[in-house]
């Protein structure tokens, strides 16, 4: 099948690509965009490891085709923050020991990011609901939940700081 030209924004940068229609978004991200932070755990839409943000919305990248991303804004874990510029959610996962093997972590970050954008001060039940579609085999989830609660606090404080008069 012929390849299709697409244009999209990847972690804030405009990118162009030629993709075969059947290429899954997860494979496109990992192989064509060479962004290995998005992990493939099940390829049937259950584990959530491959979650990324498409136009700010968390989606399973194993259940979309790259060709569907034409014109979209894609955020992967690489778009959260780098070594010296960790995003507050990444920082919170680090501080609270919200990861062990780290394989599910990028998907967890995407889920947490979406939750906290909509619900700045989530209850524990809301946090559980937000990450219930992300399987983690290492942590038993407790420190992930604590990390998201801590991240919420960090983000709220950051917001207060930025709205205060200088």
């Amino acid at each position: 099948m012929d390849k299709v030209a697409i244009e999209l924004t990847v972690n804030g940068r405009a990118r162009q690509a030629l993709v075969a229609p059947r290429v899954l978004l997860s494979d496109f991200i990992r192989q064509q965009l060479a962004l290995p932070g998005t992990h493939v755990g099940c390829e049937h839409g259950v584990c959530g490891s491959c979650n990324v943000l498409v136009n700010g919305v968390a989606v399973r990248s194993c259940l979309m085709f790259a060709v569907q991303l034409d014109g979209a804004e894609l955020t992967t874990v690489e778009g959260f923050g780098g070594a010296d510029t960790l995003h507050p959610i990444q920082e919170a996962f680090w501080e609270e020991h919200g990861l062990q093997c780290g394989f599910c972590t990028p998907g967890m970050l995407a889920a947490a990011s979406e939750l906290l954008a909509q619900t700045p001060d989530p209850t524990e039940a809301e946090i559980r609901e937000a990450i219930a579609g992300n399987l983690c085999r290492c942590t038993g989830y407790q420190y992930i939940i604590e990390a998201i609660r801590s991240a919420a606090r960090k983000l709220r404080e950051a917001r207060v700081e930025t709205t205060e008069p200088v």
Binding site: R30, L35, P36, G37, T38, H39, V40, T76, V77, E78, F80, G81, G82, A83, L86, Q90, F93, W94, E95, H97, L99, G102, F103, T105, P106, L109
Partner: peptide
């Protein structure tokens, strides 16, 4: 805090499929 975490948290862990 774990020494291992920053690279993992930023998607640069280096797993087999990477």
């Amino acid at each position: 805090k774990r020494v291992e975490d920053p690279r993992i948290l930023t998607g640069k862990g280096g797993y087999i499929d990477d």
